[in-house]
């Protein structure tokens, strides 16, 4: 019979293990602390200061926050952001789900199609934004030239306050649909084939199978895709910066663009930080709600 190790020895061993664990974590931890957590804390601190770049920062407590709540530009930008999110998230999710169903077949050359669909995500957003402004050009753009084939006189997509937002959102959807398709594809391939056969035996139509079996079993993937998409859409900046600069008027001035404007055009880093904190809180609340909603409805067990 083995004697249990003396208590002190076990404790020392556990301590050593803990230390070793942290030592192995350290490289990641440094990254997370230094490049994710520290900036967040710095921004929160900065939001309490009146700091115009090139001037001395001055502590002003919550004055920036008081200004924030009476600033119609800020409210407008958050409504615009919400509008953007409400187009992009369902658009990207549905399109990527459909694409994944489409490429989840064993056909020759299918992997090339898959790769092709992911390319928009690999390209530089700024370059893509530039290419899309050419496509959207009312006179010579590919889109209106195409519409002209059918005798349609295409509108000025990016100069109309009505159409500019759907146009930039469409670019976002195009850019991320292929990438999100990969997650759904992985999710689909995790669903045991036996379920497919069982439902077929029970006489379920492909549509019924999709809604009764596939979709519920994709919930873990859905959770991930929705959360990353919501966060990504709230933080969208680059394509809007290139394509509309928040215009025409302020019809595409999303929160991140306003932050950029305050920080790098007006050099008001204190106030820009305050808007950033608000955006952070909004995203945090939305993300937590998503988790809570899905927690009760998700199964990770396919057996």
């Amino acid at each position: 019979m083995l004697k249990p190790a003396p208590r002190r020895g076990r404790q020392a061993q556990r301590q050593r293990q803990t230390l070793a664990g942290y030592a192995m974590l350290a490289p990641s931890l440094v990254g997370v602390l230094g490049f994710l957590l520290a900036p967040v804390l710095i921004v929160i601190v900065l939001s309490l200061f009146d700091w115009k770049l090139l001037a001395t920062p001055e502590f002003i407590g919550l004055a920036n926050y008081r200004e924030l709540f009476s600033d119609s530009d800020v409210w407008h930008s958050f409504l615009v952001t919400l509008y953007y999110v409400l187009i992009c998230v369902p658009g990207t999710t549905i399109l990527s789900l459909l694409l994944s169903l489409l490429v989840n077949r064993k056909l020759r050359g299918m992997k090339y199609f898959r790769a092709l669909l992911v390319i928009p995500w690999m390209a530089t957003p700024v370059a893509m934004g530039l290419v899309w402004t050419w496509i959207f050009d009312p006179g010579r753009g590919a889109l209106n030239q195409f519409l002209a084939v059918f005798g349609i006189d295409g509108p000025a997509w990016l100069s109309s306050s009505l159409l500019a937002m759907p146009s930039v959102a469409a670019v976002h959807i195009w850019q991320f649909a292929g990438y999100n398709m990969l997650f759904f594809l992985a999710g689909l391939q995790n669903i045991p084939a036996a379920l497919r056969e069982a439902s077929a035996l029970d006489g379920a139509s492909p549509v019924a199978h999709f809604f009764a079996i596939t979709l519920p079993l994709l919930r873990p993937t859905m959770l991930f895709v929705l959360i990353t998409n919501v966060i990504g859409s709230f933080q969208a900046f680059d394509t809007i910066f290139v394509m509309t600069e928040g215009g025409p008027g302020n019809s595409t001035e999303v929160a991140t663009y306003l932050i950029y404007d305050e920080a790098f055009r007006k050099y008001d880093f204190g106030y820009a930080s305050t808007i950033s904190v608000l955006l952070f809180v909004v995203i945090l609340v939305v993300t937590i709600s998503q988790f809570v909603y899905f927690e009760r409805r998700t199964t990770y067990d396919f057996s």
Partner: peptide
């Protein structure tokens, strides 16, 4: 007109 020339997308 401006739909084709206005910055930032104008040409």
């Amino acid at each position: 007109d401006g739909t084709r020339t206005n910055p930032p997308t104008g040409q």
